[in-house]
Amino acid sequence: MRNEISEQQIKEYQDKGFIIVKNFCSREEIDLLYQTALNDQAMSKNALDLNDQSGKKTKLSLWFTPGNDVFGYLTRSNKVVKAVSQILGNSAPVCHYHSKLMQKEPKVGGAWEWHQDYGYWYKNQFMFPEQMMSVLIALTPANKENGCLQVISESHKMGRINHGFTGEQVGADMQMVDNALKTMELVYAELQPGDALFFHSNLVHRSEANFSDYPRWSLISCYTLQSNIAYKETSESWKIPVDVVPDEAILNWDHESLSSADFLKKENDPALKESGWENQV
């Protein structure tokens, strides 16, 4: 089967906290996704701006329930869901937590500060970070010049570290990040359109601002297992098994607009609200 995740890749994920799968999506699939991202008014209408600590804006559109749009077909596709299931290595059904379109524009796209995804999701009170992961698919080239993702290999083995606010973002305790950088390998996840990065919920990562002349757009879909529990998450998608569709749905099935998607509103994000301990890091 296309894009089958090998035992060696699963071992690498367990060891390093991430794997890169080249050409996970075809050029035709990426072209369709990127054009939809550019042209579907729902994406721009529901984009959130988050300031980094320098004041530059990072832009994203985040929604929970995967629908019958082209992005929904990708996040529900057999190749993605099977890969997630293989990597997480659990018999529980895979659930889609949320997806977000990251839009880092030339010259103005801001940075993402050092963080773990579970640094955010801890506030949603998910119980088992080992049962959560993210899948980043590059829609445009991602390189050092335009602010590709940087990851600290093996940092997921540290477990969750404290997070506080840096700008409007949730950022990791920099003392522990500095310790990790002295101890483990820093990797620039340079990707071509269609490449996929699968990474652990506790992997420490960041991205620089985009100072290049070219955009860096990517889709990040986050998954959890139904056996995981969230005690402070108001959306419903995290506990509903993915309604898997065949891979050919992405290109061949009729697509709806994203206008009916359940986009996150900035004021409703618990990760951006004070919980009392952020100022202690």
Rank of each mutant, 00 (worst) to 15 (best):
Met1Asn: 14
Met1Gly: 13
Arg2Glu: 15
Ser6Pro: 04
Lys11Pro: 07
Gly17Ala: 05
Phe18Glu: 05
Phe24Ser: 02
Cys25Phe: 12
Cys25Gly: 11
Asp31Lys: 14
Tyr34Asn: 08
Gln35Ser: 15
Gln41Trp: 06
Ala42Gln: 09
Ala42Ser: 02
Met43Gly: 01
Ser44Asp: 10
Lys45His: 04
Ala47Lys: 04
Leu48Thr: 07
Asp49Thr: 10
Leu50Glu: 02
Leu50Thr: 03
Lys56Phe: 03
Lys59Cys: 08
Leu60Pro: 04
Ser61Cys: 08
Phe64Trp: 01
Gly67Met: 02
Val70Phe: 00
Phe71Gly: 05
Phe71Glu: 07
Phe71Trp: 10
Asn78Ala: 11
Val84Thr: 10
Ser85Asn: 14
Leu88Asn: 03
Asn90Pro: 10
Ser99Glu: 10
Ala111Tyr: 02
Trp114Val: 08
Trp114Leu: 11
His115Ser: 07
Tyr120Glu: 04
Trp121Thr: 00
Tyr122Gln: 11
Tyr122His: 11
Asn124Ile: 12
Met127Pro: 13
Met127Arg: 13
Met127Ile: 15
Met133His: 07
Ser134Arg: 00
Ile137Trp: 07
Pro141Ala: 10
Asn146Cys: 11
Ser155Asn: 02
Lys157Arg: 15
Met158Pro: 03
Gly159Trp: 02
Gly159Ser: 15
Gly167Ser: 05
Val170Asp: 09
Met174Gly: 10
Gln175Ile: 13
Asn179Pro: 10
Tyr188Cys: 01
Tyr188Ala: 06
Glu190Phe: 08
Pro193Ile: 09
Asp195Leu: 00
Phe198Cys: 03
His200Pro: 01
Arg206Trp: 02
Ser212Lys: 06
Ser212Ile: 01
Tyr214Arg: 14
Pro215Ala: 07
Arg216Ala: 04
Arg216Leu: 01
Trp217Thr: 03
Leu219Val: 08
Leu219Phe: 00
Leu225Gln: 03
Gln226Lys: 14
Asn228His: 10
Ile229Thr: 14
Ile240Gly: 03
Ile240Lys: 08
Val245Met: 03
Glu248Ile: 15
Trp253Arg: 12
Trp253Met: 09
Trp253Gln: 15
Asp254Tyr: 12
Glu256Leu: 12
Glu256Arg: 05
Glu256Thr: 09
Ser259Trp: 01
Phe263Gly: 00
Phe263Ser: 00
Phe263Ala: 01
Leu264Met: 04
Lys265Asn: 03
Lys265Val: 03
Lys266Met: 00
Lys266Ser: 06
Asp269Ala: 11
Pro270Arg: 12
Pro270Met: 13
Ala271Ile: 11
Ser275Lys: 14
Trp277Pro: 12
Gln280Met: 15
Val281Met: 14
